[in-house]
Design a protein around this nucleic acid. Structure first.
Lengths: 345, 345
DNA sequence: TTGATTTATGCACACGTGAACATTGTACCC
DNA sequence: GGGTACAATGTTCACGTGTGCATAAATCAA
């Protein structure tokens, strides 16, 4: 390491025991005020910086939380991490970052590494771990909060914080129905099985509730092995033709990036949005407001999601009770959706 | 901490000394093969996980690097961090993340916290620290790489990696000149003084080289106290009228987000891009390809920037020689720029 | 058999800090 | 003056790991 100056060095220089220095620097009333200020002064002069590693070893806690995300380059993830980081900093916790590339194996590997580093807590966004990692995961007994977990079978002993995918999808679909659309497509993301399933259900149930029978031809799901964020756009482009072939007048997309892909594909094919086709996204990333036409979407409280995850974790660390939480979404109407009537029935 | 099982526990269970266990787990040839495998087996059964904190204390290195960025929600930063993260993971290093909000005070505070935590190295993106933090910074002797440093007076004892702002700006301006534009505006970002100045110089020099006298009325710089990424868009919107008033036919923006703001403002005012006004950005963030019209811009190798920063740092840690580096940019032509001739002279 | 060499393991200490307990000195009370 | 209370500081140990040195057993050479 870098700074070799320890409390022992200071003790030697001041001809006292290292304990006295330790106490003086922590402003312990056990040390006389005179000696205390004197030692603090000396420490400053000598350029002493406490060794947090040693403190962690002694105190058996690192004041660090491990954060695992699928990728850091995703704008959605970026906002969530910002919320986490702010809350962590306020609480005096450091943030150890790792990336899973949406791969359960890399995810559990990151958990194990964080375990070795003795992080006090763990936050995993879009957790993928499932039965295949059950045994390895069960060895890791670190307080953990999962944000928008994606496993089909959730783990009981983790705490979760999620956005209400189901009701968000219902909201989007109802809105399109209210605009007069009947044949409404859905383009999903197979690599987020949990949310995708919930959104698909919300979509289908909303259709049924409106007396519209869901058609399989209206639905396309991007391959589950597409791991990267950037795949969303190309998947949207690739899947549009299939859904269009089913003669839909509106498409609800799993997220905004897919919707952007759809928008680009429409432009190539000369399809005007929203006149010929209405598009809805999900997430409400910053980008949604900047594309043309600005994207109607379902807002996820991303900053809040991160902040709450950290707050839940802090409560866990204090052994306070923690409830799994589901946050509501909001409908955001912009320019990519329009009355069905306008394009003629 | 969590897992109370130490090598001493294993030693007790196997009735050997903890030294033997330590050696066995590290596959030391000093321990007989039989005992070695036996102890490794036992460790696995007992669910032993090495304590990296203790190892760090002993080894006097943490295998951790501290990363300070202005904000994590910025798409440019996201890509750079992704490059850093990947390289760090490959090298077996952890990544401790902190955010400065583009505030020199928060930046130096983060450095000090990382110093306490004894990170092996430090990467700072868009570093703002300047003379005001000189004394505090000089106490921190951790190997450090600055990415795109923003201080007007660079520090000698830090290593830097930057993109060639000056030549990138020249490239952009020359391209607009080549399209026939003469009155070319510049909208800058006062909160990144370093790059902004370099890009402004490149822009002005390119104009002069083409025989065009730079006009102050063509240039507007967003306030330096705007700290957040999201301010870029609104700054672009706010500054457009001033530059338009100077009767320019093209605008070169400090970055893509400002260009997006300009684009939005143009739409509100009924100005069509690129027919009535050509727009160039800088950075080539993902968004640039998705807006309408797709943004012509200067490409920064963001992933490579992060990756190289980490590689430079690793070389520093191995006491190998490291050269400060400047990476080239590339011109990316999309749809927001067009021949001046088209709109008639 | 004896001494030298090799093999396998234990002991003691160090990393830097913090805390329980021990020690010294001082003032106070009866 | 002797005991007690308290203030200020030192001693020792612990956190979990790794390493230099010592030790013990075993092998080998002569």
């Amino acid at each position: 390491m870098n700074n070799p100056i320890s409390i022992r060095d200071i003790a030697r220089a001041a001809d006292v025991s290292h304990t006295t220095v330790s106490r003086a620097l922590r402003d312990s009333p056990l040390i006389s005020l005179e000696v205390r200020t004197q030692l603090q002064q000396l420490a400053r002069e000598m350029g002493y910086t406490p060794n947090a590693v040693a403190q962690s070893l002694k105190a058996r806690q690192t004041h660090t939380i491990g954060l695992i995300v699928t990728t850091i380059a995703d704008p959605f993830v970026g906002r969530v991490v910002r919320g986490i980081e702010a809350a962590a900093q306020d609480a005096g916790f450091g943030l150890l970052l790792s990336v899973s590339n949406n791969d359960p194996e890399q995810e559990i590997a990151a958990m194990e590494i964080f375990h070795r580093r003795r992080v006090d807590g763990l936050i995993i966004a879009a957790a993928r771990l499932s039965a295949a990692q059950a045994d390895r995961a069960s060895r890791i007994t670190i307080p953990t909060v999962l944000i928008n977990p994606q496993a089909e079978t959730p783990y009981e002993h983790f705490h979760t914080l999620a956005v209400n995918d189901y009701s968000g999808a219902q909201m989007a679909t109802r809105y399109l129905l209210a605009l007069g659309h009947r044949a409404i497509g859905y383009i999903g993301a197979g690599n987020r099985p949990g949310s995708n399933r919930a959104r698909l259900s919300g979509y289908r149930d909303a259709l049924r509730a409106a007396g519209v029978a869901p058609q399989d031809a209206w639905v396309r799901i991007a391959p589950a092995d597409h791991r990267y964020h950037s795949d969303d756009v190309s998947d949207g482009q690739a899947l549009l033709p299939d859904v269009l072939a089913a003669d839909v007048s509106a498409i609800f997309c799993y997220n905004d990036m897919l919707a952007v892909g759809v928008t680009l594909a429409c432009r190539e094919r000369g399809i005007t949005i929203p006149e010929q086709l209405s598009i809805m996204g999900f997430d409400d990333i910053e980008l949604a407001a900047y594309v043309t036409p600005a994207l109607s979407t379902i807002h996820q409280p991303k900053l809040r999601l991160g902040q709450m995850a950290m707050e839940m974790l802090l409560r866990l660390l204090k052994n306070e009770s923690v409830e799994n939480t589901v946050l509501p979404t909001e409908l955001v109407v912009r320019e990519s959706t329009v009355q069905r009537a306008i394009c003629g029935t």
